[in-house]
Amino acid sequence: MSGLRAFLRNWHWTLPGFVLLLLLLGLPALMALPLAFSDFDGLHPPRYLGLGNLAKAWNDPLFWTALGNSLTVAAWSVPLRLLLALGLALLLHRPRRGVGLLRSAALAPSLTPDIAWALLWLWILNPLYGPFAWLLQAFGIAPDIWLTDAAAARRVLALIGLWLLGELVVVLIAARKEIPQELYDLSTVEGAGAWTVFRRLTLPMLLPVLLLLACRDAALSFQTSFTPALIITKGGPQFGTLLLPLYVYQNGFEYLRFGYAAALTLAMFAVTLLMIAVQLFWLRRWTRIGA
């Protein structure tokens, strides 16, 4: 509650970002809403359809495939990314020689245009000439598994998504620095080992931040996985990496079904909200137990 009060007192600081958000995202999203209930090909004026688009999505097996794929990729990439980011943050939070360089390296993929790293990955993943193929072969896995096996392709997408952990690392480093050093000193004096310190001190202190990041990341992973799915796996094999945003894109900009695409976006939005609600529920519970 004190957080809310603090927000009410300082809300004006959020104004510039909020206005931009409203102008660039909120307003268009609001205007997309009626589109979701119309048939619109971009060439003729929209025609009101009622719930027709949503009904169509309900009966569209590809929509469910895409939704399932998106959720699977998120289920793989969000926890993994968070775990990796946490590990990196704990390694990199202390000022040490060269740590600035490493932090920049962790952040760099997030600052690189999607298309650039997607193309880079395309090369890395090349089943004959790429380093990834060599790695897979070293483990006795067929180097083209991500081209033939839908589940493997989704895992590869999740793997690619791992590299977008820069922002998470930055936030987690900041959060780690917020934990008073005296708590660590006390733990040391009390004879707590590294694992106990992590489990009983670091992890619970970071938990609220971690959960918040998980919410944000889950919502974001629906979107960040778009470029690699478009460029690298192209939705295949067997629609195995046809992710929801990719399907939206295809419908809207390739098949000129703007109305349907808007309805799918609406569905995507609803699923995202649902995911965030579930996670916030857990966040509440955990923070009540935790800090």
């Binding site: 660039l24 268009p28 997309a32 619109f40 999607d114 939206v248 808007a262």
Partner: peptide, 23 residues
């Protein structure tokens, strides 16, 4: 930032422009 983040925005921009441009 990913182009998709703007996907809904792009979709809606289309409508907005359609509304203005359909002179």
């Amino acid at each position: 930032m990913p182009a998709t983040r703007l996907l809904p925005a792009a979709l809606l921009l289309v409508v907005a422009l359609a509304a203005c441009g359909r002179g």
